[in-house]
Design a protein around this nucleic acid. Structure first.
Lengths: 110, 110
DNA sequence: ATTATTTATCGTAATATTGCAATATAAAAA
DNA sequence: TTTTTATATTGCAATATTACGATAAATAAT
């Protein structure tokens, strides 16, 4: 017990949950925000932007990467991280479709 | 150690993370999906829709509620849950602004 | 070659989440 | 009132996440 029952849900549900989960920590929201702000791939100094130790930041970057929200390329002895747009648009589209469904709802009960 | 350092991040960052985290489990994505599909407040039978025991579903509902994604009203001996639109739009707006910032970016490095 | 810089990984402790059986609560139906 | 029905809470075990010091790995600078 204790492990998420992934196999009982649809691929789409798991996919959305994975992306949402990756954004379910303020440090990771802050990382995305920073990558957007600098308007360029940045090589390093994400660590300096965050109130967390370097190994912790590295771990958060790894999670964002494995969820497909950022990508990184080796650039000398640094690594160039930037936003991976595809999955950002995937979750944006998800919320847009949720919003559309909400607009079509007739009953406003609660 | 081990506890999220909430206090080091902005209110906005924590707010987005909280909403995203609530959607960071396929069961909770499935619940939202179901509430959208039935096009009405439903009273009960969410449990029958999910491959999880009743206490587990109840816990997931509690989390969605505390994140402000659903709301529930007592209706006889049942409870009427439905989507709380406000926070859905809040996270939709967040992803729209992320998308806008992405569109304004000139460099497509990685 | 040695040293500095940058990022990743390991190990581990603290904390949080997931899931469910058992039980509680509270209204509805009999 | 007793029983049924619907949902919540408790308690607990399994698992996952968060955080960081120590260390590794790999390139850059000296």
């Amino acid at each position: 017990m204790g492990a998420t029952k992934t196999e009982h849900f649809t691929d789409k549900q798991n996919e959305i949950a994975t992306i949402a989960k990756a954004l379910g920590h303020p440090a990771r929201v802050a990382i995305i925000e920073y990558l957007l702000k600098v308007d360029a791939c940045i090589c390093g100094d994400i660590v300096n932007e965050l109130p967390l130790a370097q190994p912790t930041v590295s771990q958060h970057l790894k999670e964002l990467k494995s969820a497909g929200l950022i990508k990184g390329e080796i650039e000398g002895n640094a690594i160039c991280y930037c936003i991976d747009e595809k999955n950002i648009y995937k979750i944006l589209n998800y919320f847009m479709s949720v919003s559309n469904k909400l607009n079509k709802k007739k009953k406003n009960c609660c």
